[in-house]
């Protein structure tokens, strides 16, 4: 029990007649970086707001460090660093004053880290928050989420709106937090943003978890684009019968297909003929997610019955 930091079971959230979460399940283990991926409107921010006790679930249950967010209250939120998806900063005070205010809400925790983080992100603390650009506001958001070195970081689309350099810097912060033992729960609508740092990824769609896997596992299942050029026209039907081979296309003497799993059988079959050229490249994980978003049944349905797990 103590090594799961976030648990959700059958989480349902209705806004009036709209169902935002429809029985969502989650299990985030202590110390892992967990990607939470889904298209816009899938329920990512709603889930996060339930975890922070901004929203109360209609049905089901969420627990953070073993407590429901409502029961955990301020003491629970003291252990969390949160970066909202759409960060709004207002008021006439400066960025520095704003960060000091947020530290004061935490009883002063994190105050000593403000200057160093501001320097690292090149944020001018003297500027009024109202006049900051979107990127600079996001820096304020990132700094306040990390400054008190929380045990759990909940980051809603942390790299959106940042230039590549800053994206890199934020992901570096995530790695550092992870290295000191923090658990990181980060959402995104594109896998690319989290795949370099996440250990595991949950895919959600229309308020439900449709799949959970490691990034390596996802990559394996996403498969490879294989292209083989033969001396003589290959037999497409025979190739399609091979385990793990899909989407076979033969164009003159060239066969292209999608390969999931081990290439052994395909290579043995190919070697019976004369192979003039071959290539195999990893498929973009984004393609796999587009499959998932289009299909109802999740990854398993998207890729047929070739799930290797």
């Amino acid at each position: 029990m103590s090594d799961t930091v976030i648990v959700a079971r059958g989480l349902v959230k209705d806004y009036g007649r709209t169902r935002a979460l429809d029985g969502l399940d989650l299990e985030v283990r202590a110390g892992e970086v967990y990607g939470f991926i889904g298209p816009n409107g899938a329920g990512k921010s709603t889930t996060i707001r339930v975890l922070l006790d901004l929203l109360r679930p209609t049905a089901g249950e969420a627990r953070v460090f073993g407590l429901t967010p409502a029961a955990g209250g301020p003491a629970l939120r003291a252990r969390i660093g949160y970066l909202p998806g759409e960060l709004a900063l207002g008021g006439r005070i400066s960025a520095g004053e704003h960060l000091h205010h947020l530290a004061a809400l935490r009883g002063g925790r994190g105050r000593d880290a403000i200057d160093a983080l501001a320097e690292r992100f090149r944020l001018d603390l003297a500027r009024p928050v109202r006049t900051l650009s979107k990127g600079n506001k996001q820096k304020v958001g990132v700094i306040q989420a990390f400054m008190h070195e929380p045990e759990l970081l909940i980051l809603d689309e942390p790299t959106s709106g940042l230039d590549p350099l800053l994206q890199y810097e934020v992901l570096a912060l995530v790695r550092e937090a992870s290295a000191r033992g923090a658990t990181v729960f980060m959402s995104s609508h594109v896998l690319r943003e989290v795949e370099t740092v996440a250990d595991r990824v949950a895919v959600i769609r229309e308020g439900k978890t449709v799949d959970v896997d490691s990034v390596a596992g996802l990559r394996r299942r996403a498969g490879q684009r294989v292209s083989l050029r033969f001396a003589e026209a290959p037999d497409a039907a025979a190739a399609a019968a091979i385990e793990g081979v899909e989407q076979v296309r033969v164009d003159d003497h060239t066969l292209t297909c999608l390969l999931r799993g081990e290439p052994n059988e395909l290579l043995q079959w190919a070697a019976r003929g004369r192979v003039l050229a071959w290539s195999a490249r990893d498929r973009d994980l984004e393609d796999l997610f587009l499959d998932v978003y289009r299909n109802h049944g999740g990854l398993a349905a998207a890729e047929g019955d070739h799930d290797a797990r």
Binding site: L54, P74, A75, L76, P84, A88, G90, G91, L102, L105
Partner: peptide
């Protein structure tokens, strides 16, 4: 409504 209270509400304050 304009979102500027979100960080305060997510802070460890009842």
């Amino acid at each position: 409504e304009d979102g500027t209270l979100e960080l305060d509400l997510a802070a460890p304050v009842g």
